[in-house]
């Protein structure tokens, strides 16, 4: 990667990145991996999800993301699944077993695992 030389280059690059991460066929599984989450076992959850995605051959469609704090410390580890065109869903109290269930049910069968859903209680400024 060369240095960005001006605002135009940045804009172009932004558009490319945006497409890469939130294109119409990009499913994102985000694992909250701040200190709290990791202490509660988010690392194992991440590995479990990544393993499952590989095993199921979803590597092209699904990006598994190590992210920061999602805010719901009381329900760590937390995982958010976002499928283009659908409202993203936040899950709490995930362990490596439940993680596999999420991948199978939510991604493969498109079924929300309702008993693990946390209310996503915030809006983000646009």
């Amino acid at each position: 990667m060369k240095k960005l030389k001006n605002i135009e280059e940045l804009k172009d690059f932004r558009d490319k990145c945006a497409e890469k991460f939130s294109g119409p066929d990009k499913i994102r599984i985000i694992v909250g991996m701040a200190t709290c989450g990791i202490a509660a076992g988010a690392g194992e959850v991440f590995d479990s999800i990544a393993g499952e995605v590989m095993k199921l051959g979803l590597g092209d469609k699904v990006t598994v993301v190590r992210s920061g704090c999602m805010g719901a410390c009381h329900a760590e580890p937390t995982v958010e699944i976002s499928i283009p065109g659908e409202e993203s869903v936040l899950y709490g109290n995930i362990d490596s077993q439940r993680a596999k269930v999420l991948v199978k049910n939510h991604i493969m069968r498109n079924e929300v695992v309702t008993e693990l859903v946390l209310e996503k209680a915030y809006e983000t400024i646009s």
Binding site: C36, I38, A39, E76
Partner: peptide
Amino acid sequence: CVGACGLAPVVIADGKVHG
């Protein structure tokens, strides 16, 4: 405070966080 307040009370044993 190690910032893992969601898991309070927290004990850290040789770097491993117990919540």
